[in-house]
Structures are given as C-alpha cells and as structure tokens.
Design a protein around this nucleic acid. Structure first.
Length: 371
DNA sequence: AACACGTGGTA
DNA sequence: TTACCAAGTGT
C-alpha cells in the first residue's frame, strides 16, 4: 500500500486502484496483508489458478471450497484416490485439468518435499502448469517479478496500446509490454490488479471506461473504440456430431454406468453406454448401437455444445433386470448418481431418461414417464 | 502451428 | 436465439 500518489505511471495507477477496488476471493490475501509480507498459500493459489483456466470465478468458488475442505494440503490431494478427484471435479469441465492436478500434487509431494517450486521455470515443469499459471503462482505466492498474461490482461493491454495485431499471434508482444509494466515491489498485486481491472472495468462488452484508472492515457479510449480490441483471428464454425446414449434402469432404479478411457474427450470420466459420435446424418440415432439387447424406448434428443463441436444425442431408455446387462460397467443406485464422476452431458442424458435423477430424496420410479 | 479440450453465463 | 466468451494447457 505504497501508492497513495500514483501520478501518471500506469503501473502505480493500477496498484492504487487495486488497493481500493480489489475483489475479495477465497484464495487471496488482501493487498493490506500482502503489504505486511503475508503471502497466499501456494497450494491454494495453484488450485485456484488451475480451476480458473477458461472458467469463471463464479463457477470456481464452490469447487474451490469443496477441494480445500476435502484436501486441505497438497499432500492430502496427492494421497487421494484419482476417482474421488474426478468425482469432485465433475461439472467443471476440461477434465485433463483434474488428471494433471492429481499428477502435479503427487509430483510436488513426492519429488519436491511437499513444497511447490518458487520459480516460473520450476513451476512450468509441472503437469497442467503452462506460461500463464507458472507466472501467476510465481508472482502471487512467491513475490517473483513474473509477467502474467491471461485473457483479462490481453484485453487491458491491447486496449491501452490499441494493438491492431490479432491474437494469438500478438501474444509475445503483449507479454513484453506486461513485463515492462510489472513492478519489482508488488508483482503479485499487480497481476491480480490487471485481472480485476479486466474482469470488472475493462470488460469485453460495454467497458466502464469512466471508472478506469487508465482512462487518461488509454489509446483505445482516445480513439473511442475500446470494444474493437483485442483483435482476434476468426474461429472455425462448429461441426455437428450425432450419437445415441442408452440409459438402462433396473428393478431398484439403479442405472448402468461405465468408465471412459483415461485420455481424450471426457477422459477418465463416467458415462452411460453410448455410440460413437459422428458427422453421419444417421449416426447412432438407431438403437442398434445399444450395449445389450433390450426393449429400448426412444425418449428424445439432447443437444450439448462442446468447445469444438455440437453434439445431438438421441436418448434411449429401458427397464431391465440386472442379468440382462452385458459388458463392463456397474449398476449405480439412483440416489448416489449425483456423487459420480459424470460430466454434464451425461447428466443431461440421464435426466432426459429419468427426470427425477439428481433431485435429492426424489424416488425415481414415481416420476419416470413411460412412453 | 493448429487443433483438442467443457461448461455456464450473458446479451 | 445464436454468439461470444472466462484467470489456458498439451500435443
């Protein structure tokens, strides 16, 4: 808190703004605490940064609470069952993050004596930690003068300098500009200040420029076109893929589940049996892709949008005895479905077949509609 | 370098 | 409703 008179140095203006307007978040220490030499717990910084990759603060909060209460230290997470970690991560997306999270915890616990490396290079060598996360942990948890560049900072920097070069090509140029602004005395606060500025003032749409500490010197605002930045390359159109999912229900309202392979889309997560997802017009929409012979009833189609394709999944259901089910998998009681490592697309498919699934204390049988 | 990789919120 | 996008990483 040494920036009472920020003058016209943008770094000091941003820090002074942060002292007054910083967000309070569960994984942070306040700038006043940081000024007294108190650093955030590297484990909590790392966990939050990985969760926040391509993910909103609002979505992360409850997962962060769950993880830190279940596994208070990196050693606890290292000793956890991978399946339990995947269950806890279910719904947050980008499941490779959870697999790498577990690997990273094991590496830190076993090869680094339970302490995170305190340099960018050391951090970046760990699974799931790339340029951004390494710089963020180094600056926030270890007070290193690291240049932190994420989507927020890209927006702030590209507007402040009115950078016409498109992302992602312009990233090195932006990183150099951030490095030149990053102070030696408060690098962690500066990184968090830039991200808070991008998240609350310098927003993608309708930025609140009147409230911005950089409004006097921002090139994009001077040109009256802040929303034109950052310039990005056009993205490809999303293809549509088709498939079928099969929800088998036994006499006791248990659902037949199985495990996905450890890598690739939804890797290591739990699923109901389903066909390949293909671009074929008739791809898997017929019950001939079913995991075992039964009286499969059609019960509608769900649409789920992934990062790089849209999935239209025809959902089939059947009521069978356990003996009828073949292949690898298990029967999961309806009341414990919600604790499973089911990605959202699979929850949607099950809910399509069993509308009462995932609703606490609701007997499934009463609410199942027979087609 | 370009593509794979989830989800939910917002306008 | 469609489109964009949010604290990116791995291959």
């Amino acid at each position: 808190m040494t920036d009472a008179h920020p003058g016209t140095d943008p770094t000091r203006q941003i820090l002074a703004w942060y002292d007054r307007h910083h967000r309070d978040l569960p994984w942070r220490v306040t700038p006043a605490m940081a000024a007294r030499g108190i650093r955030a717990d590297p484990y909590r910084v790392w966990l939050s940064e990985v969760m926040l990759q391509q993910t909103t603060v609002q979505a992360v909060k409850r997962y962060f609470d769950l993880f830190t209460s279940t596994w208070p230290t990196v050693a606890d997470l290292a000793e956890a069952e991978t399946e339990e970690v995947m269950k806890a991560w279910a719904g947050l997306g980008y499941y490779a993050r959870a697999r790498n999270l577990k690997k990273c915890a094991e590496t830190v616990a076993l090869s680094h004596d339970g302490r995170f490396p305190d340099t960018e290079a050391g951090l970046k060598a760990l699974p799931g930690i790339g340029d951004y996360t390494a710089a963020a942990i180094a600056a926030i948890a270890f007070d290193r003068q690291a240049a932190v560049l994420d989507g927020n900072v890209e927006r702030v920097i590209s507007r402040f300098h009115a950078i016409d070069a498109p992302l992602p090509g312009a990233k090195p140029q932006m990183r150099a500009l951030v490095a030149a602004m990053t102070p030696a005395d408060r690098p962690g606060d500066f990184a968090q200040a830039m991200m808070d500025l991008g998240a609350t003032i310098c927003t993608p749409k309708r930025p609140a420029c009147a409230l911005c500490p950089l409004k006097e010197t921002c090139r994009a605002l001077a040109a009256d076109e802040p929303e034109r930045f950052p310039v990005k390359v056009a993205k490809r159109e999303k293809p549509v893929r088709l498939g079928a999912a099969f929800v088998a229900i036994d006499e006791a309202d248990a659902v037949f589940l199985r495990k996905r392979p450890g890598h690739g889309l939804l890797g290591g997560m739990t699923e109901v049996p389903n066909s390949d997802w293909t671009a074929r017009r008739d791809g898997g929409t017929e019950p001939d892709a079913a995991p075992f012979a039964a009286d499969w009833q059609t019960c509608g189609t769900i649409i789920h949008v992934f990062t790089h394709f849209e999935l239209r999944l025809a959902v089939f259901r059947c009521r069978v005895s356990r003996a009828a089910a073949g292949g690898p998998g298990w029967w999961e009681p309806w009341h414990t479905l919600d604790g499973q490592a089911l990605p959202t697309v699979m929850k949607k498919a099950i809910k399509q077949a069993l509308p009462a699934a995932f609703e606490p204390n609701a007997p499934v049988r009463e609410k199942v509609r027979t087609p």
